[in-house]
Amino acid sequence: MDDELITERRPVAFPQVFGYLRHVTGGLSRHAALVDCLTEYCRQHELTLCGVFADREATVAVRSPAFVGLLDALELPDIYGAVVPALSHLGPKRVAADRKRQITATDARLLVVRSTRPLTAPARFRRESPGLQHQGGT
Score class of each variant (00 low, 15 high):
residue 1 M to I: 07
residue 2 D to E: 14
residue 3 D to Y: 10
residue 5 L to K: 10
residue 5 L to S: 10
residue 7 T to L: 13
residue 7 T to A: 13
residue 8 E to Q: 11
residue 8 E to Y: 07
residue 9 R to F: 12
residue 10 R to G: 07
residue 11 P to Q: 10
residue 12 V to Q: 13
residue 18 F to S: 02
residue 19 G to N: 05
residue 20 Y to I: 07
residue 22 R to M: 04
residue 24 V to E: 10
residue 25 T to F: 07
residue 27 G to E: 03
residue 27 G to V: 03
residue 28 L to V: 09
residue 29 S to W: 04
residue 30 R to W: 04
residue 31 H to N: 09
residue 33 A to P: 02
residue 34 L to C: 10
residue 35 V to P: 04
residue 36 D to S: 15
residue 37 C to S: 13
residue 38 L to P: 02
residue 41 Y to R: 09
residue 41 Y to G: 06
residue 42 C to D: 03
residue 43 R to A: 14
residue 44 Q to F: 02
residue 45 H to Q: 08
residue 48 T to K: 09
residue 49 L to C: 03
residue 51 G to M: 06
residue 53 F to I: 02
residue 54 A to Q: 10
residue 56 R to E: 10
residue 56 R to T: 13
residue 57 E to D: 14
residue 59 T to W: 06
residue 64 S to Q: 09
residue 65 P to M: 09
residue 65 P to D: 08
residue 66 A to D: 03
residue 66 A to Y: 03
residue 67 F to L: 06
residue 75 E to D: 12
residue 76 L to E: 14
residue 76 L to I: 00
residue 77 P to R: 04
residue 78 D to K: 11
residue 78 D to W: 05
residue 81 G to F: 00
residue 82 A to L: 04
residue 82 A to P: 02
residue 83 V to W: 00
residue 84 V to R: 00
residue 84 V to C: 05
residue 86 A to P: 00
residue 87 L to D: 00
residue 88 S to L: 11
residue 89 H to Q: 11
residue 90 L to H: 01
residue 90 L to R: 00
residue 93 K to Y: 07
residue 93 K to W: 05
residue 95 V to G: 01
residue 95 V to D: 11
residue 97 A to D: 15
residue 98 D to W: 03
residue 98 D to Y: 04
residue 98 D to V: 12
residue 99 R to S: 06
residue 101 R to Q: 15
residue 103 I to L: 11
residue 105 A to P: 01
residue 106 T to S: 08
residue 106 T to V: 05
residue 107 D to N: 15
residue 107 D to F: 06
residue 108 A to W: 01
residue 109 R to T: 00
residue 109 R to P: 00
residue 110 L to M: 13
residue 111 L to Q: 01
residue 113 V to Y: 15
residue 113 V to S: 07
residue 115 S to M: 07
residue 116 T to E: 15
residue 117 R to A: 15
residue 118 P to Q: 12
residue 121 A to V: 06
residue 121 A to Y: 05
residue 121 A to H: 09
residue 121 A to W: 07
residue 123 A to K: 11
residue 126 R to H: 10
residue 126 R to I: 14
residue 127 R to N: 09
residue 128 E to V: 10
residue 129 S to A: 12
residue 130 P to S: 13
residue 130 P to I: 07
residue 133 Q to I: 14
residue 137 G to K: 01
residue 137 G to W: 02
residue 138 T to N: 11
residue 138 T to C: 08
residue 138 T to V: 12
residue 138 T to R: 13
